[in-house]
Amino acid sequence: MMTERLRTHLLPVAVMALAVLALWYAGALWLNAPQVLDGFARAHTDHWTLSEFARQAFSQKRPILPTPDQIASEMVQSLTGYPVTHVRNLLFHTAVTAGSALTGFGMGVVLGILLAIGIVQVKTLESSLLPWVITSQTIPVLAIAPMVVVILGNIGFSGLLPKAVISMYLCFFPITIGMVKGLRSADPLSLDLMRTYSANGQQTFWLLRLPSALPYLFTSLKIAVAASVVGAIVAELPTGGQAGLGARLLSGSYYGQTVQIWSALVMSALLSVSLVWLIGLMERFVVTGKRGGTR
């Protein structure tokens, strides 16, 4: 069984990962070649070997495409070389981004669930609000990110809150949609059973509808938490590079520090993946029944 699983699942993933790595190094060789050749021409090195060329291409100071080992060593240096509260420590920036992402996520969860309950319980809201909830997502939300930051800055809110608002806007939609679907997914048989117990609307809601919506909720939460990280990162762009992974991206792109950009990217991917993983872990504790609500 185990070897079978290894062969059918792990092997393709491993091959794919290796292929990505190989492509990456090949790409670095290809994209950094002009820089290297330029360097050789300037040093009047006419005779160079292929290995020398490769070594140069993989260790440029400002490469067009840094190699994975360059990114890894930059990250290790940044994480271990400075105290956690230092501006040059990536964990500091990750914490800033995670803070606003999670605040926005929390707000989005509350808003999303309240909207969903409203939509399910009040017919008028369903017919008039739901189309707008959907339309709100066809709007390129992130376009308004800099403006929200500026507007909230004008009325005296700066720092965490504007970024959290943007994360919230990105978060609430998947949660509303998932919860609406979930709250309606209660088994008709169980609903009838609740009626035979003469349970009132509230009891049915708390004892049956809400628990049966949980699997849907968690599926949505995973999508939403990833979206909240995107929101926080993009919201950090217009604040002009003070702190946060988005600010790292922006300052890296201003100063051509490609390794810095890539390490911020890897860090944001790690942050996002670990948040999704945490939600999955919570799901395993909370949802004990059968799983459903795939999207």
């Binding site: 393709p12 993933v13 991206l249 993946v273």
Partner: peptide, 24 residues
């Protein structure tokens, strides 16, 4: 089977962050 986990990973990470690299 190799691409699907990669795709699921890509849906969890903020891909839009690649923008500065692409601009470069």
């Amino acid at each position: 089977r190799g691409l699907l986990p990669l795709g699921n990973l890509a849906s969890a990470i903020p891909v839009v962050g690649i923008a500065p690299v692409m601009v470069m």
